[in-house]
Design a protein around this nucleic acid. Structure first.
Lengths: 214, 214, 214, 214
DNA sequence: GATGAATGAGAATTCATTCAT
DNA sequence: GATGAATGAATTCTCATTCAT
C-alpha cells in the first residue's frame, strides 16, 4: 500500500533530509532516494535499527555507500525520514477516525479503523517498533515517536465515547498500547488467528472495555 | 523482590550459563556472577541492549573485562541468563493469578495481580522490551521471550472469565500486549498519571473489556 | 542479492580469496591485494605465522587495518592465499624436472632443478615451513600443504631412476624431506657453506643415494 | 637439590627449572612436575607451541593455573625444560652411534640407530618440530635446538664413512634434515609404509648416498 | 602445596564515514 | 550523480600472569 503512494501530491519525497539539505532532485535522484527509503524499511524490518548496517541498506537498494551519504548524513537521518513518513501516515489515520458511539455504527467504525491501522503497521511496523530501541539515541527520534503515539492516544481518547469513571487520557494510551503491541504479535506470528478473528477480538475488547453510553 | 533468590538450592545461580559449561562456583564466584547479572539489568535498562557495551556492564559491576568473559561468552549470553530469570519470575506470577470472576472480588484480584506485574516490569522491563530487538539474534532468546509471553497469555485466558463470544486465546494475547506495552509507557514517562490511577484504568479496561458473567 | 555480475572480467589474482566471495577488483584493488600478499610473505618470513600480527602485515603493506579485512577475513585466509600461490609454483617446478638418469646429464638436471627449488624456498620458505605449524588449523591449509609435498614426492619418484630394491614412493618422500629441511637449515644459517657447495652436496647425496642404473 | 644437580645419578626431573629456582621438591611436588612436563608434551604435540594454551596444559595435567606458575615462570620455560630433556636424549643417542662402515655391519648399525631415533621422535617429535616455530622467540630455545641438531650432524659426519669428494659437514646436516623431516612425515601419516619399510628405505638412501669405502 | 578467581594489556574485527575517480 | 576503495576509532574477546584463600 504505502510505498509508492501514487495519491501523494507534489510534495515528493523531499522532506527526507539530505546532507546538502535542499538539493534539487531530478528524476534520477528521486528514484535513488526512493530506493534508499524502501531499502531502509526492508532492512529495519528484518534486523531492527541497531543491527541494520548501512551496508545492508545499500545492498538492498542496489546502490553504493558513497551514494547513501549523498542523500543522508547517516543512518539515523534515514530513519528519521522514515519516522516522519510514519508520523504523517498516523496523523492522517487519526483524522479518519470518526466518533465511536456505543452502538453498532460505532463498533463498525472502530473495526474499520483498526483494519487500516493494521495495514499501516504491516508496512511501517518496523519503524514503529524501533522507536523504542531508538529512544536512547542522541537525536530525538524517540521523542518524535512518542509524540506520534501520544497524539494518537489523545485523538482516540476524544473519539471513544468512554465512561465518566474512566480517565480517558490514560485509557487512550492503554488502547494505543494494546493496538500497537497486538499488531506486533500478529506480525511476528504469535497470534494464531485469521486477520478477521484478530480484528474482531481487538474491536470487542476495546469496545466493551472502553466505549459505553455516557 | 526478584533478584536475590535465597531459596535456591545447591546449584544456585546455575542457570546463568557460563563458558566452559557451568563451572562450579564458590561463594566469591557466586557474588561476582550476581554483580554481573545486576549490572546487566542496570545497563540494559539505561541504554538498551544494543547500545550497551560490555565495558559499561563491567564498570557497573566494578569488575574487569576479563572477568566478564569468565562468566559469559558474550553480551548475548548474559542477556540470555537474564531472560531465563525473567521467564521464571513471569511463570511464578502466572501461577499467582486466581480466577478473575465478574464481581468485585475478581476485580480486586485482577488489580493486585496487575500491581505485581508492574513491579516486575519496573525491575525487568528492559529485558522484556529487548526480546523484540533480540528476535533476530542467533540464539533463540527471541523465541524464549515469545514463549514466556505466550504462556502468560494462555494463563490469563484461562483465568479471566470471558464472554463466550470472544476468542479468549486471542483476547489473552491482546491483554498481555496492553499490559506489557502500557507498563512501558508508564516507565518511559509517557503516561502522566499516578501509579494508582494507571492501575485503576488498566484494571477497568481489562475487566470491562474481557471479563463477563458467563 | 544482486546476481553475480555477468560481465565478470578476467579476475586475476583471484585465488586470493576475499570476504564477500571474491569481489571484482579494479586496478587499485589489485594493487592493494598484491601489497597485502607481499607483506604477508615478508612478515611470515620474519616472525613466523603465529607471531605475525595483522598489524605487522598492515604496516608492511602501508595500508590500514580496515583495508586488510576488506580483502581477507583474517590472517589465516591471507595465509591460505599464499599457500595456493606456493602450490602453484611447486606444481610448476614439478613439471620442469626431466628424467634423472644415472649419468652426468641426469646429475646436471637434478642439480639445476635443486637450484630452482632453492630459489623458490628462499622466497616462499616461510609459507612452506608454516604448513607444519598450521596443520592443526580449522581450514585445511595443512592438508593442502601435505598434498603439495606429496605431489612433489610422487613426481620425484617418477623421475628419479631408482634401484629396483628401493621403494621409490617412500624414497621420494625422503628426498623431499631432505630437500625441504635442508633448505631451511641453509636459510637459518645453520649450514655453513656456499650455495654451490650446498647444492653439490645435496645433489650428490640424492644422486648416489637414490639414482642408479636400473 | 635438583637444578644444580652435581651428583648426576638420581637426577630426577629436577633440571626442569622453576621460578623459585631451586625449590626442594618432595614426592608430591615431583609428581606434579612430572604431570606438567608430560602434559606439555601432549599438548605441544597436539597443537604446536604457539597454539598451546597454559590452560590446555593445566587441564591435561589435571592441575590448576596457580600450580603451573609454581613450577615454571611461563610457558616458554616449560618448553625449555622439555628441550633440555630432548637435548640430553639426543646427545645420548649420538654417542650410541658406532662407526658406519661401508659393509653389512655398518648398514645394520645405521639401521638400528635410525630405529632408535624414530622411537625418540615418536615421543619428543613435537618438541623437535617446535624448535622451528620457537626460533623467533626471545629466549634462545631456538638456538638450543639448533645446537642439538648441529651436534648430531657433526657426530654423524664423524661416524659415517663418507667419500672424500663429499663435504661431510654439509652432508651430515643433509642427513639430519632428512631423518628429522622424514620422521615427521611418518608421524603425520604422510608416509604410507610400515615402520620396517620406512626404516629400510631411509637406511638405503643414507647408506648409498653417503657411506662409501674411503 | 594447591587452587579458583581476577586482572588487564594486547590482538582481532567491525563498520560508519570520507575520498578519489 | 554514482561508485569502489580506504580509513581508523570503537569494540569485542583472549590469555598469560598474579592474587587471596
Amino acid at each position: 500500500m504505502p510505498p509508492s503512494d501514487p495519491a501523494a501530491p507534489p510534495r515528493q519525497l523531499g522532506r527526507a533530509g539530505a546532507p546538502g539539505q535542499n538539493r534539487e532532485l531530478r528524476t534520477r535522484g528521486q528514484h535513488t532516494l526512493r530506493k534508499l527509503l524502501d531499502a531502509g524499511i526492508t532492512v529495519f524490518s528484518a534486523k531492527g535499527y541497531h543491527a541494520a548496517r548501512v551496508d545492508d541498506i545499500v545492498k538492498a537498494a542496489r546502490t553504493s555507500h558513497g551514494t547513501f551519504y549523498l542523500y543522508f548524513a547517516n543512518k539515523e537521518e534515514l530513519f528519521a525520514a522514515l519516522v516522519a513518513d510514519v508520523a504523517e501516515e498516523v496523523a492522517g489515520l487519526s483524522e479518519e477516525l470518526s466518533d465511536v458511539t456505543p452502538d453498532d455504527a460505532g463498533r463498525a467504525a472502530l473495526r474499520s479503523w483498526l483494519a487500516r491501522f493494521a495495514d499501516l503497521y504491516a508496512h511501517y511496523g518496523a519503524v514503529i517498533r524501533t522507536w523504542t530501541e531508538a529512544e536512547s539515541s542522541q537525536v530525538d527520534v524517540g521523542r518524535m515517536g512518542r509524540d506520534v503515539l501520544g497524539g494518537l492516544a489523545a485523538e482516540l481518547a476524544g473519539r471513544l465515547s468512554g465512561s465518566p469513571d474512566i480517565d480517558m487520557a490514560v485509557a487512550g494510551l492503554a488502547v494505543v498500547a494494546m493496538v500497537e503491541r497486538f499488531n506486533y504479535y500478529v506480525l511476528s506470528g504469535q497470534v494464531k488467528a485469521t486477520r478477521d478473528e484478530a480484528l474482531d477480538t481487538l474491536t470487542d475488547v476495546i469496545f466493551d472495555g472502553v466505549v459505553v453510553a455516557r
